Amino acid sequence: MTVAVVDMRSAEAEMAFVETLKRTGFAVLRNSPLDAQRMARMVDDWRDFFFGEEKWKHLAEETPSGNTSGYIPPDVSETAVGHDVKDLKEFFHIVPDTILPAGLASDAESHLIEAQALGRLLLGWLDIHCGSALSAGLRGELAESISPADSLLRVLHYPPLTGDEPPDAVRAAAHEDINLITLLPVSSEPGLQVLGRDGKWTDVPGLPGDVIVNSGDMLQEASGRQLPSTSHRVINPSDESSNLSRISMPYFIAPDLDIQLSEKHTAGSYLRERLDLLAR
């Protein structure tokens, strides 16, 4: 499977984005409105944060919306649905009113504003070109359905491997995202792969400054599977020369939880079903 690179300065960007999302569930945006210099600076600054001791002052707490806010260490990191071993990562969750480390706050808040605006633009394109495929509750309303309180910026750190990892542990086991769409600046190191319909894993392309976009389960549900939520993973470094720290900054865009995704599910009931699976 080939994930298309869409130049947002092109007159064909809108349709190219919609078509690759329909075909693969993924797209790579080039020349996006997200500030590439800021994103590069955030990678360096957050890497320093994860290697430092200040992170322990920001241990995560649950927010009123049910999200977590703050630092989640490796020993309580998540286990992907269908897997028995925790992923090899630590991360920091940013939602409205998260208390951020002082030196990281300004860039994170500015990035979040830009990411929300980009998400609204992309969902607007889907409103125009996929509106008839959407559930009645979301037809023509995707762009207006975004809930900042239920969306989440996750800054991920995949540490270098030590050789003491549990058998079969990987940086991020195969999974699908639960939300509408995810915006993911191309990472500082390779490793992200997507599963094709032929059952083969393919590296997701991209250059520094590019933004990867993928459909989530909620969008798949709301579109009657016409916008697929595609399984993806982050593989471990292949050799000593590539065994480097990896920073990733996905922004998971979610709708208001009372929105009807389909006859069977609201966004809230769909989320609770996934969380129940994670808890088993």
Rank of each mutant, 00 (worst) to 15 (best):
Glu114Ile: 05
Glu114Arg: 11
Ala115Lys: 06
Gln116Ala: 12
Gln116His: 15
Ala117Glu: 15
Ala117Leu: 13
Ala117Met: 13
Ala117Trp: 04
Gly119His: 06
Gly119Trp: 03
Arg120Leu: 02
Arg120Asn: 10
Arg120Ala: 15
Leu122His: 04
Gly124His: 04
Gly124Leu: 02
Trp125Leu: 13
Trp125Ser: 03
Trp125Ile: 04
Leu126Ser: 05
Leu126Glu: 05
Leu126Pro: 06
Asp127Lys: 03
Asp127Glu: 04
Ile128Gln: 13
His129Asn: 09
Cys130Met: 13
Gly131Ile: 09
Gly131Ala: 02
Gly131Arg: 04
Ser132Thr: 14
Ala133Val: 12
Ala133Met: 14
Leu134Arg: 03
Ala136Thr: 15
Ala136Tyr: 02
Ala136Ile: 14
Ala136Trp: 07
Gly140Asn: 07
Glu141Pro: 01
Glu141Lys: 15
Ala143Trp: 08
Ala143Phe: 03
Glu144Ile: 01
Ser145Ala: 14
Ser145Leu: 10
Ile146Asn: 07
Ser147Ile: 10
Ser147Asp: 15
Pro148Gly: 12
Ala149Tyr: 12
Asp150Val: 04
Leu152His: 03
Leu152Met: 11
Leu153Arg: 08
Leu153Ile: 09
Arg154Ala: 12
Arg154Cys: 09
Val155Thr: 12
Leu156Asp: 04
Leu156Phe: 13
His157Asp: 11
Tyr158Gly: 00
Pro159His: 00
Pro159Arg: 02
Pro159Lys: 01
Leu161Glu: 06
Leu161Thr: 09
Leu161Ala: 04
Leu161Met: 14
Thr162Ser: 15
Gly163Cys: 01
Gly163Phe: 00
Gly163Lys: 04
Asp164Asn: 15
Asp164Met: 13
Glu165Ile: 10
Glu165Pro: 03
Pro167Ser: 12
Asp168Glu: 14
Asp168His: 13
Asp168Ser: 14
Ala169Ser: 15
Val170Ile: 15
Val170Tyr: 01
Val170Arg: 12
Val170Gln: 13
Ala172His: 06
Ala172Trp: 02
Ala172Phe: 03
Ala172Ser: 13
Ala172Leu: 14
Ala173Lys: 09
Ala173Val: 08
Ala173Pro: 10
Ala173Glu: 07
Ala174Phe: 06
Ala174Val: 09
His175Gln: 11
His175Ile: 10
His175Thr: 10
Glu176Pro: 05
Asp177Gln: 04
Asp177Ala: 03
Asp177Pro: 08
Asp177Thr: 03
Ile178Cys: 05
Leu180Gly: 08
Ile181Leu: 14
Ile181His: 05
Thr182Ser: 14
Thr182Phe: 00
Thr182Leu: 04
Leu183Glu: 08
Leu183Trp: 00
Leu183Ala: 08
Leu184Cys: 07
Pro185Thr: 09
Val186Glu: 05
Val186Ala: 11
Ser187Gly: 14
Ser187Ile: 03
Ser188His: 05
Glu189Ile: 08
Glu189Trp: 02
Glu189His: 13
Pro190Cys: 06
